[in-house]
Simulated scan of single mutants.
Amino acid sequence: MAKLLYAFSCSVDGFIAGPGGDMSWLTPHLGPDPVVDELIPDIGALLVGRRTFEGDDPHRGTEAEGKAFGGGWDGPQFVLTRRPAPATPGVTFVGDLAEAVEAAKAAAGEKYVNVLGADVGRQCLEAGLLDEILALPVPVLLGDGVRMFDHPGGTTIALEPLRPNWYRVAGPRLV
């Protein structure tokens, strides 16, 4: 069965987006990455937050704008949202996290469901649904923005290293 993987690029100080969700900081750092190139064929579906789906795109102004992994991946996308959304080919809008995860896993088969968006990643952690995390640090400090994981008051979630920057969520899981 499919596993949920929260894979993301982040600044060294832990931000996946700048203030207001700005992704332009990432644009100069896009390019071939052997880890991403190896991962892409193993992704069967995306589970995406609504803000991420509608948000800023580091590929803005290029042929790859609006395409997952800069156009390197194509497949079913499941967007977690409670707001009505216009029909989009290849995209299913789902209002419930458990239903979205179930649908994405079914679509992914034996491959990964790649989670995109800090809020969806946090929700998956809190629900005990996230299996693995792949953090791709980028050599920049942003100082402010959207953290890859934010839990006011703090919490500790144990991660078991699988390979460099790749971890299994070991627990304890948030309740």
Rank of each mutant, 00 (worst) to 15 (best):
P41F: 04
V101S: 04
V91H: 01
T155R: 11
V115W: 05
A118I: 03
R173L: 11
G55V: 00
L46W: 01
D144I: 14
Q77D: 15
V113C: 06
A98H: 04
A107K: 01
Y6Q: 07
D131N: 01
L142V: 15
D42C: 04
S11L: 05
T155Y: 07
H29G: 09
H151V: 10
G70D: 06
K67V: 14
F93K: 09
A104M: 04
V146H: 02
L4G: 02
F149L: 13
E110K: 10
G143D: 12
C124D: 05
L174F: 02
V120A: 11
D37K: 05
Y6L: 03
R50K: 08
L159V: 10
L4V: 04
D33E: 14
H59L: 08
G109N: 08
A108C: 10
E99P: 01
V113H: 03
P19T: 09
D144A: 00
P19H: 00
R173D: 03
M23T: 11
V175H: 00
L39C: 10
D57A: 02
P161E: 03
R173W: 07
Y112A: 03
V140R: 05
G153L: 02
G49Y: 01
S11H: 08
A100N: 04
R82W: 00
V48M: 07
G20C: 11
V146Q: 04
G72E: 10
P76V: 09
V169R: 02
E38C: 06
E160F: 03
F78R: 00
R51S: 11
V94K: 08
P152W: 02
P89E: 05
T92G: 15
L39M: 13
Y112P: 01
G153T: 07
D42W: 03
F8L: 09
V36K: 13
V48A: 11
T81R: 12
G20D: 05
G49L: 04
P172W: 05
A103L: 05
Y6M: 02
G14V: 14
G121M: 06
F78E: 11
R82Q: 09
I133C: 05
K67D: 10
G20H: 09
F78D: 10
P41D: 01
A68M: 09
T155W: 07
D37A: 05
